[in-house]
């Protein structure tokens, strides 16, 4: 039964996270500019739990986490560069 309880608990966390996200989206004025970041943080947490518990599979979390870290290392520069290139000043302007 232990496994079932673990999975049900994760499911509960996912549902809880979903509810909080919806609440913030509907009326997150207290959080102001951080509303978006908060929602994304909750989403990341949900993905993290799915990854570690639902997807643990035969190889367990550790080698998987290493692969995930390397994946992020390569995709993160893209994100940063994209953001930077859009947001930072450059010569000339957009019409």
């Amino acid at each position: 039964m232990i496994d079932e309880m673990k999975y049900a608990a994760v499911y509960g966390i996912l549902m809880l996270g979903l509810i909080v996200e919806l609440l913030i989206a509907v009326d997150g004025s207290i959080l102001g500019a951080f509303a978006g970041a908060a929602i994304l943080a909750i989403a990341s947490l949900q993905a993290f739990f799915i990854f570690l518990v639902y997807m643990h599979g035969r190889y367990g979390p550790r080698p998987v986490a290493v692969f995930a870290a390397i994946s992020l290392l390569t995709v993160v520069p893209l994100f940063i560069a994209l953001l930077y290139s859009v947001v930072m000043p450059h010569h000339g302007s957009l019409p």
Binding site: L14, E21, L22, A25, A43, A47, I50, F51
Partner: peptide, 13 residues
């Protein structure tokens, strides 16, 4: 896990 990101990105933000 992909949907868990898609939902907020497309519906909530």
């Amino acid at each position: 896990a992909v949907w868990v990101f898609l939902f907020p990105l497309l519906y909530l933000l």
